[in-house]
Amino acid sequence: MGLGRGVKVSCTVNGHKQVADGVWEGESLLYVLRERFGLYGSKNACEQGECGSCSVYLDGTLVCACLVLGGQANGRSVVTIEGLEGAKVQQAYVEAGAVQCGFCTPGLVVATHDLLHRVPHPSEAQIREALAGNVCRCTGYAKIIDAVNLAAGRL
């Protein structure tokens, strides 16, 4: 397609083997997830790691999918918002009123899931430090903290 030879990206996404052929070498994992695998839950808000909206797990580690080159995901295991075992966190976000436009929400849910996995009952300071990379423009964050506390109480 005039973009070079293209690479093959083959990885496990949400427990399923996914393969994309002819991927342009410069495509991010975010683009591959969204446009190749049809998983649009990870969001393309800044594509420079500054907003956290594309947070996913890569081999169990919380990362920004926009900062992973598609080819780097070869042979790796990716969990996106669509495959997250995160019902309690998700329900807490809805109940606490922590969702407005929701563009930041999938990333925040994944980051919250990661936080509560590491620290089941985080202090407010720990919540704030852990979620500092997830920018929300709508809520002013108060209800996001409520949601994390609500989810922590449930876990």
Partner: peptide
């Protein structure tokens, strides 16, 4: 880690010959 390189790729600041 891609935290610098990917920004340059995503925002079309740089197109290296190879990675």
């Amino acid at each position: 880690g891609g935290t610098d390189v990917m920004v340059e790729l995503n925002l079309d600041h740089r197109r290296p010959e190879a990675i």
